[in-house]
Design a protein around this nucleic acid. Structure first.
Lengths: 247, 247
DNA sequence: GCCGCGCTTTGATCTGCATCAAATGAGGCG
DNA sequence: CGCCTCATTTGATGCAGATCAAAGCGCGGC
């Protein structure tokens, strides 16, 4: 029997020992698919949920793999991405506490998911979640709202990828991070940017070099300040917003 | 009282006189959100549906407008798009018979919609549809599946916009049109391309000139043939697929 | 405290697609 | 049937961002 698994393996996320998640006191519940559930339903959720922790760089699942689980991020940050055969990569989203992960129309995941920083999730068997959805229409409705939201965000991102300049993309990105931080109750102005330049590049359809240069340029224009530990202060949100929305 | 509105105004689509749509014999029902409904539910749908026709270029709704209706395309083709303040445009999708239109997470449409060719739709009041969804869980589940599918498609499109070359984009686009035509029971090989070069450009994040040049190049390489009335024969689907998936 | 490694920044050059410009072609209408 | 209009194609040139290259720099290990 394992007394102390101390160091986590870097592969599939470590299972938490002990107590099931106390959904009733979950700090991010109001953001999640569980938001509209009553106590009875929450208890049912607790019984089918497993908590897992992933370290930065850990793979959560891979594109094409049978989609047996879905996840709720409770802490940390996740990137989801697709690859072309020659290695070109498109990050299609970053997920934070409260975000739902693993919706697949097909039987297989449509994208890969990897932790960007230390990340905790609630994991469900897809089949068990399906049963929950049938039993609790409010949950299904909530999931539909979440999906609609993601769809709107995806279209915003298409606009960015198809039509915005590098500077506009970076400004949009910083404002997005800031907005998401506020929604998640994290600090919104000196905003934390947990992902690497290359993840940002692959999210914005640019290269690391262009991302870096553009940050430098925004800094030299006094619009942002680059702080310690990947934190960025949005010094002139108004101008950044104008740039992002484009003029 | 209007006796004969003969020529349709080019604004909001003309209302059909007479009989409600015969949902029971609807040719595209199996593709739509109505697919899983029984006869009782179909009758209810009939009572809240209005049929409308739009001519090519007609606006169906505008981004930002209160989202009071949702639509089912029953015939024709629709483009949905977003604009930047200076007029740059991103077409985020083309919709065909069977496709659902108007999901808005917010109270407002997240994008504009315009007919690309003569188009017929079933229109519902959002509120009435919401009631239907509560009454018929199968319909809500179906809508969730549709939304999941669209999400997967959106991610595919982000990959295209962020990482593919012009040639790869055009190849992907033609194969997408062909696949959608097959799904909708329309002719899949000489595929009909109802939208203008400039709509295609705005969908693929290119310019009309680049779209045109790339078509010409694919033609000169013997991969496609440009036929009368915007039809395109995919002469070498294998190579097109290789190009689209990228090597 | 020093070393080594990977990430980020900065610099120099190249290129795919955009932009600008003009010719060609396809409908629609008088 | 010929003209007008607008979409498409083709051509010439420019540029934003990619690519190639080489320093900085922060961080963990010893």
């Amino acid at each position: 029997m394992v007394i102390s698994g101390d160091k986590v393996t870097r592969a599939a996320g470590s299972e938490e020992p002990g107590i099931p998640p106390a959904c009733a006191v979950c700090g991010v519940r109001s953001l999640t698919v569980c938001a509209p559930l009553d106590n009875e339903a929450l208890t049912a959720v607790e019984h089918i949920a497993t908590r897992r922790t992933f370290e930065s760089g850990d793979c959560i699942f891979d594109e094409g793999e049978p989609a047996r689980h879905v996840f709720n991020v409770t802490e940390g940050a996740v990137k989801i991405f697709k690859l072309l055969a020659d290695g070109r990569r498109q990050v299609t989203g970053f997920l934070f506490a409260g975000d739902f992960l693993g919706l697949a129309s097909d039987e297989a995941y449509a994208y890969s998911a990897e932790a960007v920083s230390t990340t905790r999730v609630c994991r469900f068997q897809r089949r068990q979640l399906d049963e929950m959805l049938q039993r609790y229409p409010l949950m299904e409705r909530r999931l539909l709202d979440i999906a609609s939201n993601e769809l709107a965000q995806a279209q915003e991102q298409m606009l960015l990828l198809g039509r915005k300049t590098a500077k506009e993309r970076i400004a949009s990105f910083l404002l997005l991070l800031s907005r998401r931080a506020r929604q998640g109750g994290r600090q919104e102005n000196p905003v934390t940017v947990p992902m690497s330049r290359s993840d940002i590049a692959d999210y914005l359809g640019l290269t690391t070099e262009t991302v870096s240069r553009t940050f430098t340029k925004l800094k030299s224009e006094g619009l942002i300040e680059l702080l310690r530990e990947g934190r960025v202060r949005l010094a002139d949100k108004g101008t950044l917003t104008e740039i992002a929305e484009t003029f």
